Simulated scan of single mutants.
Amino acid sequence: MAQITFKNNPVTLPNTEVKVGDQAPEFTVLSNGLEPVTLKDTSGKVRLVSVVPSLDTGVCSDQTKRFSEEATSLGDNVEVLTISADLPFAQKRWTDINKVDAITTLSDHRDLSFGEAYGLTMQELRLLARSVFVLDENDKVTYAEYVSEGTDHPDYEKALNAVKELTK
């Protein structure tokens, strides 16, 4: 299981870890319009799933902006999803203020369904641990990064290269 710290303090995560080669676990999150969105709803495309603790923090904001900037160059068969435990209203406000429209933000606030299924719920904080996953069109995990320190950036290039490998 991934050992994660947040501001250098250890955090407790669920006893699940998604690995390369696994079938992506099912989840239900909320769209900014409060509609449920499941893994099956996103199937059929390559997905880069960027997970952040909160869009209203510097590293999370930068991570989301970076993947948004890259999204348009990844092709029509790629969808970039950002999942956090922020309220859908806060996500919508953030995307409007930052003029981010090339990605889809999804909220795991209600049930922490995604966080529990992917082993990302920091129990002490009720936030998701920073991570990045790449899923193929058939929901197979082809890339997984659990960022060991929650205030660090993920490896953008490795994640983007994993997407590009699937879209050659």
Rank of each mutant, 00 (worst) to 15 (best):
M1D: 11
T142C: 06
V163Y: 03
Q23R: 14
Q123T: 02
K99P: 02
T151M: 11
L48V: 02
N161S: 11
K99N: 06
Y146H: 05
F114S: 03
E145Q: 15
R130L: 06
I103Q: 10
R126A: 09
R110E: 14
L39K: 06
H153V: 00
P10Q: 08
D152I: 00
L13Q: 08
T95A: 09
N161F: 00
D152G: 01
T28D: 02
I4G: 02
F114W: 04
T82Q: 08
T167H: 05
P14W: 07
T16R: 14
K40G: 07
Y118H: 02
D136G: 09
G119F: 03
K65H: 12
L135K: 09
K140V: 09
T28W: 02
D56G: 12
V59F: 07
V46F: 11
A117Q: 09
D152M: 05
G21Y: 02
S73I: 01
T38M: 02
R47S: 13
V18Q: 10
A159W: 01
D62S: 15
A24D: 07
V46K: 10
I4M: 05
E35G: 05
D108N: 07
T121D: 08
V163F: 04
D56E: 12
K45W: 06
E79T: 15
D62Q: 15
P25D: 09
E69V: 00
T5C: 06
R126V: 03
L55M: 14
I103G: 12
D139I: 03
R130T: 01
G75S: 12
G119H: 05
V147I: 10
V52Y: 02
I4Q: 03
L13N: 08
R47A: 11
F114R: 06
S107H: 09
T64V: 13
I83Q: 10
T142D: 03
Y146E: 03
A71Y: 11
D101A: 12
T57Q: 11
D136K: 07
E116R: 10
P154E: 13
L120Q: 07
A159E: 05
V52G: 07
E35R: 12
N32T: 15
L125R: 15
V59E: 02
L48F: 01
Q23N: 14
E69R: 13
A85F: 01
C60P: 11
I83T: 09
L128C: 06
V20I: 15
T72V: 12
P154M: 13
V80Q: 03
K7W: 04
N161G: 04
V11N: 01
G44V: 00
A85G: 14
A129N: 06
E165M: 10
S84E: 11
S31R: 11
R66Y: 15
T38C: 02
T142Q: 11
R93H: 14
A71L: 08
K164N: 10
R130D: 04
R93D: 14
E165Q: 13
I83N: 05
K19I: 02
E149I: 00
T121K: 14
P36E: 13
V52L: 13
F27H: 03
L120G: 05
Q63N: 12
S50L: 10
F89V: 07
